[in-house]
């Protein structure tokens, strides 16, 4: 087979164009002088006073730029909702990935609570150590993924509870923000005592927000996993 057949002229031209573009981009970017004074350093300086959180990334995510996180949670919700619209639920739905293995089933029974607990731990310690709402939420969702893989069609999620979790965790985030605003501060501002750096019950509003974020992410990703793992098989249609 000739090269022309395998690759095609258009592909080559495209590749040339894009490489040229990347080269130009690199040329410009390499010239740049990276700045050493930035928003991040300013925020580091005031981090201890304003949040008492041991993890500066958490402070940024949940507090200094909490609104971005709200937007991100919204996007997550929106996508999952959009996926839900597109996928019709019907009786022919089945788990397309499933391993019928007793060992796996028993192991999963043991592991599942541990995974969820670990996820909750990661969420709760978001302001103290690396980790946080997203990471913990995804860990919890991975527990559910394990359940789907192990039990297949016989595992049933209570969708009512799940959607309630989804709704309440998202709403909780916003309501905390509004409460803060009503308490006299800014939206998502800190209205709780900051506590002492390094303690679990510290940093005011941060852990609360991260818990909501974590639950939201866990619920959304679980729904996502269910949508994808349990669909009408494309090949059937």
């Amino acid at each position: 087979m000739s090269l022309k057949k395998t690759v095609g002229l258009k592909t080559i031209l495209t590749a040339l164009l894009i490489s040229f573009m990347s080269m130009l981009l690199l040329g410009v970017i390499m010239n740049a002088a990276y700045t050493h004074t930035s928003l991040g350093y300013d925020l580091l300086k005031i981090n201890t006073i304003s949040t008492q959180s041991a993890n500066a990334v958490t402070s940024v995510v949940t507090y200094f730029r909490g609104l971005d996180t709200l937007g991100e949670v919204t996007i997550l919700f929106l996508s999952i909702f959009g996926i839900g619209i597109g996928i019709e639920r019907s009786d022919r739905m089945k788990t397309i990935l499933g391993y019928d293995s007793t060992l796996l089933k028993i192991g999963t029974k043991v592991l599942f609570p541990l995974i969820v607990l670990f996820g909750l731990y990661i969420i709760a310690h978001g302001h103290l150590s690396p980790g946080g709402g997203f990471q913990g939420g995804v860990i919890i969702a991975s527990g559910f993924l394990l359940m789907f893989l192990a039990y297949g069609d016989s595992y049933d999620l209570d969708h009512k509870v799940l959607s309630l979790f989804e709704a309440l965790s998202g709403a909780g985030f916003i309501l905390v923000g509004i409460l803060a605003a009503l308490a006299g501060g800014a939206f998502l501002g800190n209205m709780l005592p900051l506590g002492v750096l390094g303690k679990l019950f510290s940093s005011g509003i941060l852990p609360i927000i991260y818990i909501f974020v974590g639950l939201k992410v866990a619920a959304e990703i679980t729904v996502l996993v269910e949508y994808f793992i349990r669909t009408q098989d494309a090949r059937d249609a």
């Binding site: 930035s38 928003l39 991040g40 350093y41 925020l43 580091l44 500066a56 990334v57 402070s59 940024v60 995510v61 730029r65 971005d68 996180t69 937007g71 991100e72 997203f134």
Partner: peptide, 11 residues
């Protein structure tokens, strides 16, 4: 290191 890029990328 600057925490803001990390938060941004996380988002």
């Amino acid at each position: 290191v600057d925490p803001v890029p990390q938060a941004m990328i996380l988002t």
